[in-house]
Computed example of a mutant assay.
Amino acid sequence: MHYNCMACKNIYMMKSSGELVLLVFVAFLRVCTQTSSCREQEPLVPCFFIFGDSLVDNGNNNGILLTLAKSNYYPYGIDFPQGATGRFTNGRTYVDALALLLGFPNYIPTYSRVQGHAILRGANYASGAAGIRDETGNNLGDHISMNQQVANFGRTVQQISRYFRGDNNAVGGYLSKCIFFSGMGSNDYLNNYFMPGFYSTGSDYTPMAFATELYNLGARKVVVTGVGQIGCIPYELARNNNNNSNNNKCNDDINNAIVLFNSGLRKLVDRFNNGQLPGSKFVYLDSFQSTKDLVRNAPSYGFEVVNKGCCGVGRNNGQITCLPLQQPCDDRSKYLFWDAFHPTEAANIILAKKSFTSKSRSDAYPINIQQLAMLPVTVHSNLTAISN
């Protein structure tokens, strides 16, 4: 077990769930970013690269003019040390918590703002409204699609190459030790496939090309997430219940479609791990089962409200996301959802801990993220996209 500082060790010695652990972990994160206590050891991996949508976007959409997918205003970020940075939650995202668990002293910066040597620690390319398909999210305006995010990483590889004087073997060796996280797919259903009036999308799409391109750019330790139980988020509960006072009926059509997608994604991970991409190791996170578990066992995780957002408008606080300067709920730690679509910081921290240390394959398959980080690597340095 790797501990970045004594506070981490104390956390892991406690129970793995419940309000007390959450409060201690949040306190640790706040202290950790303001003191040198987290700098006693180097991170488990030298760098962390993040691709995805609004679940992990930490401000890349702030500079996009023509988009509705923005969250750089209060009450978003109400519990984050720097305030409303563009994170689509009240505090830390899943990857913020994961970065701390991996031992990074600070959060991974946005690609749009990372400068100089900081690129060697990693970058966050995620964009609210993005999906696997290029057209996904167009109904919300501009965003940085999956292909654009990969292209941005290609530019990052070129930047990193300069620090290694163009030595592809050295660049490949460095990148092979890093963690790559990909969390996409939710918008391909919410803002594409299940909007037939706006899109005419088929169902045959996978992250195959995305993963292969990352591999060609040097990625060897890759974490991919399945799509969560989005048929049960406040937005879908609000749409699916209308005048139903119970307001707890999930959209089974969406959930059933997600199960099929996730099954295919897990099989794809098996194919990659069985030699299709030599020297690589992929970990699949079953976000569907993990979020389902948070709902089923809400009291044990400290949650009291699992069917509506902490802030928002309409049924389940799910018909419109948080309005500027809206007053959110008082105790965010009791809520599973922050707004119509996104989990609270409390949920993000729990999900990060589960995927980092869980021994259950229903959380992380075939190994957890901590085990992935500590795996030795076999360097294949054919970085096909590096150019001067």
Rank of each mutant, 00 (worst) to 15 (best):
N240G: 04
G228S: 12
Q276T: 15
I320K: 02
N147W: 14
F104D: 00
I160R: 13
F51C: 09
Y76L: 11
F356H: 04
F341W: 05
L20F: 11
G63A: 07
D363P: 11
F48Y: 08
G202Q: 04
G166P: 12
P75F: 14
Q327F: 12
G185S: 05
F80D: 06
L190W: 12
G173T: 02
V223L: 13
M374G: 00
G59L: 14
A27R: 13
F356W: 09
S17G: 05
R220F: 06
G309I: 07
L277V: 12
T344A: 10
R162N: 15
Y111T: 10
T110S: 15
Q319I: 11
T206H: 02
S112F: 09
L29V: 00
A340M: 02
A347F: 10
N316V: 07
L323S: 10
K334M: 05
C311Q: 03
N348D: 14
N382R: 10
T357R: 06
S203P: 15
L277Y: 13
D330E: 03
G302R: 12
R30V: 03
T89A: 05
A118Q: 13
I64C: 02
P196E: 12
F28I: 05
I233Y: 11
V24I: 11
N241T: 06
L325T: 12
V269R: 03
Q370I: 00
C310M: 02
I254P: 00
S54P: 08
I349S: 04
L100F: 05
Q327I: 15
Q149K: 12
F48H: 02
F198K: 13
R30M: 07
G312T: 09
D331S: 03
N216V: 04
N61C: 11
N187L: 10
F104I: 00
G166E: 11
S355K: 09
L260F: 03
F88W: 06
S161T: 14
V31L: 10
Q41W: 00
S16P: 04
L268K: 07
E135W: 07
F180E: 07
L325V: 08
G275F: 01
F282T: 11
H2K: 00
I78T: 14
Y199S: 10
R121E: 02
V157C: 13
A238N: 08
G91E: 06
T206G: 01
E345I: 06
A211L: 15
I350G: 02
T35W: 01
S36F: 09
R92P: 03
P328E: 08
A385N: 14
A99D: 01
N4Y: 02
N316E: 05
G128T: 10
S263P: 04
A352Y: 08
S112D: 11
K249R: 12
G173I: 01
S263T: 13
A257W: 10
D188T: 08
A238M: 10
C32L: 01
I369A: 01
N61V: 11
Y235C: 05
M6Y: 00
F153E: 06
G228F: 08
N255H: 03
N382A: 07
